[in-house]
């Protein structure tokens, strides 16, 4: 099957030694969790996951042209 293109955006300290934004070519069926794991980000540290500005989950498969944003959990005051 043809591979699909997605954009991955990282926020806050997830960017350190990684990137701010990256265009990725992935296999169909690749999930949000697969991307997080491939970036060596601890799932426990992930707070907000969004595809096209909408809350999503680790289990969601990505689709062509999706923009995935990954934020750390921020809860302090």
């Amino acid at each position: 099957m043809a591979r699909i293109n997605v954009t991955v955006k990282l926020f806050a300290y997830f960017r350190e030694n990684r990137f701010k934004i990256s265009e990725q070519e992935i296999a169909p069926g690749t999930t949000v969790g697969d991307i997080v794991d491939s970036l060596d980000i601890d799932r426990e540290e992930v707070g907000v996951l969004m595809i096209n500005s909408r809350h999503t989950t680790f289990e969601t498969p990505l689709e062509e042209a999706n923009v995935l944003a990954i934020f750390p959990v921020v809860g302090g005051g």
Partner: peptide, 10 residues
């Protein structure tokens, strides 16, 4: 609402 951690905020 706002939240902070390290140098980050939302």
């Amino acid at each position: 609402s706002a939240a902070i951690g390290g140098t980050c905020g939302q």
